[in-house]
Structure formats: C-alpha cells, structure tokens
C-alpha cells in the first residue's frame, strides 16, 4: 500500500515536470511574446527595454533553468500585463473558481445520483427513458448555449438574477446550473450504468434472498458498490469537464476566477499567467486523480490486489 502511494506520487511529480517543460518550450517556440504588449505607439527602443525588463534577452535554456528554479522558490515569474507576480494574481482568482466548482459538484451529485438510480431501477419503463432522454439533452447542449439563453431569460427579460461576478448567493445560481448541465448528464449516465452492473451481481441477489427490504438492498449494497465507479468518474471526468466548463462560464458571467483569467491571458498572450494557470490546474487534476486512485484502492480491495 505504501509502495503504491509512493509510486503514485512519483508518477505525479514526473507528469508535472513534463507538463511544465512542454508548456515552457511551446511558449518560447511561438515567437516574441511582447508583440501583443507593444500596442499603440511603442517603438523598437521600448521593445528592447521591455525585453531587458522581463529577462527575455537570455537564452531559452537560461530562461528555462531560471523558471524551474523560480518554481522551487515559489516564484512563477511576472505577468507581462500586470507586471506583478503570477502566483499573486492566480491566488486572487483561485477562491472564486473553487467556490463555483464546489457548488457545481454539489448540485451535480444531488441531482444525478438519484436520477441515475431511478433510471436504473425503472430502466424498462417510461421513467427510465425520460431520465435518459434528459441526460442526453444535457449532454448535447453546450454550456455556453445554456448560459447565453439563461442570461437572456432570467436576467435580461425577467430581471430575476444578477449576471456579473460572485457577490452574493444569487450570483451562483446561473453559473452553477450552466456548469452542471453537462456534468449532471454525464454522471447520471455513469450512475445508471454502474447501478445496472451492480443490480445483476450475486451479492445483490444474496442480500435480497436474506429478506432485506428492497430499499435497503438498493441503497446499502447497490449504491455503495456503484459508488466506487461513480467516485472514479467524479475524480477523472468531472475534474476535466469542470475545468473546461469554468473557462467558458467564468468568461460569460465575469466570474473573477481562474478560467476567466486564463481566457484573457490566452487572448492577450500573457504567457507567464497562462503557463502557471495550466500548471496549477494540471497540479490540481493530477492531485485529485492520485487521491481518487488511492481512495479507489482503499474502497475496493480487489483492485489493490490487481494493481499490486
């Protein structure tokens, strides 16, 4: 077990180093990052001054080593645009993103687990079909479409809900729903399939045979076992989809989070911010994955044995 954890951690570190390296060199490959910043009315001389200011006159290898060294010291460089430490900028943004992510995951779990169970139990009736049709629809409608139309209806026409930032609880409603749509669809399907798998298993029959009430059988034995699958999906798929959702949803709702930051950084080519953003999110995803892996192993001893 300890060995397994250590191996997971080592793999995590290696993955991160590779990502940092790739991102760094890709950024340097694509030409001078300063072009975007030398906007209205700057001259070549100013460019030279700026290059010196950001240390861009050194060789790429120097910059790479300096960057790695900086990361070890917790220094991820200066934003081209804001000229202050990238880590500081990202730190300001991480809270709102996590809040939104948290509320989206909470909503997703609250809606999709019951729906998935219902869809599995009534798989052959119209209830199951209706739930699955809903899930398909949720999966098919891109979150920016949901968000755009919600804003039109609930904010512009009805004036019910605010659209800018994360000031109050009301501000969470539309972004959370828009972000959860696809997650709910995905998780409902996974829950349903996991439940279907479990429902056919021997131990379910045994439990029933023992005369346990059906609800107990389903909730205690069924859901608990299906939960393992659901957990792994949550860790892997959800983290990825949520990060993707964040990018669009935050841009639409002027949400002061990481996604909004990264979109503007991408548009204005503020590489240090983008680099750190990708690395930070990768770190989060890798960590979540590693934790899920470990949790998964703890929850299901058979895997532990298989993985060695």
């Amino acid at each position: 077990m300890t060995l397994y954890v250590l191996r997971t951690l080592a793999k995590m570190a290696l993955t991160l180093l590779t990502i940092i390296t790739l991102v760094f060199f890709a950024a340097r490959l694509s030409g001078s990052p300063l072009d975007t910043f030398l906007g209205d009315g700057l001259t070549e001389e100013d460019r030279a001054l700026m290059i010196e200011y950001f240390g861009l006159e050194r060789s790429v290898w120097h910059q790479y080593i300096a960057y790695l060294r900086g990361i070890l010291d917790g220094n991820f460089g200066l934003s081209f645009m804001e000229r202050r430490p990238v880590a500081e900028i990202v730190a300001e943004r991480i809270g709102p993103s996590l809040q939104l992510l948290g509320s989206a995951i909470a909503l997703t779990l609250a809606v999709s687990v019951p729906l998935g169970v219902v869809a599995a139990l009534w798989r052959d009736s119209w209830v199951g079909s209706a739930v699955m049709a809903l899930a398909f629809t949720g999966y098919a409608v891109p979150n920016f479409v949901i968000a755009t139309f919600m804003v039109l209806i609930f904010a512009f026409v009805l004036n019910w809900l605010p659209v800018v930032g994360n000031g109050t609880a009301l501000h969470f409603i539309m972004p959370t729903i828009a972000m959860s749509g696809v997650l709910i669809a995905a998780l409902t399907r996974f829950t349903r399939n996991a439940m279907l798998d479990v429902l056919g298993q021997d131990f379910m029959r045994t439990a029933r045979a023992k005369g346990l009430p059906e609800t107990v059988v389903i909730l205690k034995h069924g859901l608990r076992n299906a939960g393992v699958t659901v957990l792994s999906v949550l860790g892997l798929q959800i983290a990825g989809m949520a990060a993707a959702g964040n990018v669009v949803i935050e841009a639409i709702f002027s949400w002061p989070g990481i996604g909004e930051l990264l979109v503007s950084a991408a548009i204005i080519r503020d590489y240090p911010v983008l680099q750190f953003g990708v690395i930070a999110v990768a770190f989060a995803v890798v960590t979540i994955n590693a934790l899920t892996d470990i949790a998964y192993v703890i929850a299901d001893p058979r895997i532990r044995m298989a993985k060695g």
């Binding site: 993955t15 950024a27 694509s30 990825g240 983008l274 990708v278 999110v281 990768a282 995803v285």
Partner: peptide, 16 residues
C-alpha cells in the same frame, strides 16, 4: 488526462 483539454487548447491557440 492530467491537463484539462480546453486549457491545452487555449494554450495552443494562443501560441500558434
């Protein structure tokens, strides 16, 4: 899998 793809896409499109 470690890097959410939308982010990677943002990076690539910003760079190239």
């Amino acid at each position: 899998i470690a890097v959410p793809f939308t982010l990677l896409a943002l990076l690539i499109l910003a760079l190239f």
